[in-house]
Amino acid sequence: MNENQDAAVDVVVIGGGAAGLSGAVTLARSRRSVVVVDAGEPRNAPAAGVHALLGREGIAPAELLERGRAELEGYGGTILRGEVVRAAADADGFAVTLADGRAMRARRLLVTTGLVDELPSVPGLRERWGRDVLHCPYCHGWEVRDRAIGILATTPTSVHQALLFRQLSDDVVYLAAGVGMPEAEDAEKLQARGIRIIEGEITGLHIVDDRLSAVRLSDGAVIARDALAVGSRMVARSAVFDDLGLQPTSHPMGEFIAVDATGRTAVAGVWAAGNVSDLSAQVGMAAAQGTFAAAQLNADLVAEDVQIAVTRHRERGKMEAWSASRTSP
């Protein structure tokens, strides 16, 4: 493929994470021409390893993607490094434009752009994200088991988050500054599980030898903690949908692109998979969603190919009948 010219392919996959690469491999194995446009901004880049992925437990995120890219290229798929800035529908499919001016055409789109975690404005929080500032007990919980864990309450689900982390450690505190004190029923649940509720705004973190050691409150109190669980606001990377006329759907935990059970969006010819359409998807689930959406997408293309072939078959039949009538005695 010439990267400096328009090129028509069956599918352009926008996003090169687990969902995008899994979907692209599925399409390539079905002998579809497929191009993955990868901006190189994986959500899990700060993490040391990927977890709950059978057969690849603890693999570094970068290594997993490297293997996925090699698998795709082995089946004839193409990967372009770049950012899609425009995707527009027309009568012939979709025109996709990259930030550097490269352009291509596609019959279908699979959008797997993921999401961005918006964190509270606590100094130092972003720098520790994915290390000892965490969000998911299934992604990182084992690694902080039996440690002193703080729950920075930021969303309506923070009590639930605290109870999940309590399964992993006896030493959990609920830092109520973000959303205020829990309702009486929730407070009783926390107290019953031995989770201490602490009021006061968090103003900073204490870091010793590149490790979290404590959180500092506005009243000067210092609460010793080895890990801090934060409910981020998860916002789908949905800018590419603006040109397509599709707006994200609001959720108590952020925003996502709505899809049906097959991964199809409200825009004809556009599918989505992974965190852009499912805020809770871990790597394994995102990959599975990419594979499933790609299978549905391929079936849609097959149906279109069949219809085109039937139309051409009928036209040939008419032409043959007309020719026979012209030559018959």
Rank of each mutant, 00 (worst) to 15 (best):
G150K: 06
K189D: 12
S169D: 05
G141F: 04
P182N: 11
E199D: 15
L163N: 07
E201I: 04
I198K: 06
I151W: 02
Y174G: 04
W142T: 10
E143Q: 10
R166K: 15
I197K: 05
R196M: 13
A148N: 07
A187Q: 14
T203M: 05
V172P: 01
R166T: 03
I195F: 02
S158V: 09
A177T: 06
I207V: 15
L175C: 04
G180A: 11
Q191G: 10
H160A: 09
A153Y: 03
Q161P: 01
V172H: 06
R193L: 12
R145W: 13
V144K: 00
E143R: 00
I198T: 10
T154L: 08
V144A: 00
R196W: 07
G194R: 12
A162E: 05
G180K: 10
E143K: 01
I151C: 03
A177I: 04
T157R: 14
I207S: 11
L175N: 02
G200P: 11
G141M: 07
D171P: 04
I207P: 03
R147A: 14
W142I: 12
G141C: 07
R145Y: 11
I151E: 04
A148S: 14
G141K: 03
A153E: 03
G141D: 06
G204H: 09
V159Q: 01
R147P: 01
Q167M: 14
V179K: 03
P156V: 09
D170S: 12
I198R: 10
P156S: 08
E188G: 04
P156I: 07
L175Q: 01
A176S: 13
H206K: 13
H160G: 06
E185H: 03
